[in-house]
Write a protein that binds this DNA or RNA. Structure first.
Lengths: 162, 162
DNA sequence: TATTGTTATACTCTATAACTATA
DNA sequence: TATAGTTATAGAGTATAACAATA
């Protein structure tokens, strides 16, 4: 019981401290492309063109936030907003060639930093961390819309609601 | 080569996305105690009383940031600043009884959330994630003072510069 | 002179709310 | 009416720089 609590408390502490690593990563990135913008570029590179709503889901942030990042990226010519033939309210977001080059640059810088900093890590260890973080994010899923007073997920244990 | 790059790029992406989990955690915390303050309380609880400089090292943020958090916590009576007999420039930061109660509350809330969200994780998996994150933070160590143009650590690989 | 903290200022990221245009 | 996206505003977290007091 107590052991489990300190295990989770420790996780909370570790997560809160990840910021230091993120700032270290941000420090080697180009000034014109802050972290938020970089995340958008990376997702468009990995998943291909998409609408703003979809991008917000993947980023797990409000659409207003994504909208601002997208505006920033469009101004710099890294992405373009194409008309969506299926829905005139929406636009398709796509990486430009210059944007792709920026993604390559970001990737190169991140790789260089991690290769130096994590030089005693095996590939397998990096993969394991990636997998655990991905699972953590997934399990937290769409917690965003849950109100304060009711932290209960749809099905806490098994068979709680017929 | 390319496999290694995407492995590290993936890590960069995962780290950038951890923010969503942190916000989920922040959502169940008391409004009067934001994440930065919670981190300070947790560290004082785990490590005992200390000076502001030491706290900043543990938080891996600038002393100016810690100073602000400490002021916030002192105003609310959660910590107290005692005179440091060894150095009149400095003060010893110590958790008050009310502060300790707050730490317990924070711990309880975090545990409750994680117990629900990570109900299919084994204790061992949580421990592994904690260990990997701790190692990641450690390896990033004091990167903060390194200038943009020279991302080289003292010894990148083995015997690279005589 | 160097170090410990504090304060003022600026920047990034985020959420909420109000709004426009379209479905 | 409901949904996709935009914009204005506010709040948290952080860094840099200038400053005070003490070492």
């Amino acid at each position: 019981m107590t052991a489990t609590r300190s295990r989770y408390t420790e996780l909370a502490r570790q997560l809160s401290a990840v910021g230091a690593v993120k700032r270290g990563l941000a420090r080697v990135m180009p000034t014109e492309c802050p972290a938020g913008s970089a995340a958008v570029l990376t997702l468009l590179d990995q998943h291909g063109e998409m609408r703003l709503g979809r991008l917000s889901e993947l980023l797990a942030v409000d659409t207003s936030v994504t909208s601002r990042h997208v505006a920033h990226l469009t101004e710099r010519g890294w992405i373009e907003r194409l008309p969506d033939p299926a829905d005139k309210r929406s636009r398709i977001l796509r990486l430009t060639p210059v944007g792709s080059a920026m993604v390559d640059d970001l990737s190169r810088r991140a790789t260089e930093l991690f290769a130096q900093t994590l030089d005693d890590w095996t590939d397998d260890e990096v993969d394991r961390l990636n997998a655990l973080l991905a699972r953590l994010r997934h399990d937290f899923g769409d917690r965003r819309d849950r109100p304060y007073g009711d932290p209960r997920p749809p099905a806490p244990t098994a068979g709680s609601r017929p």
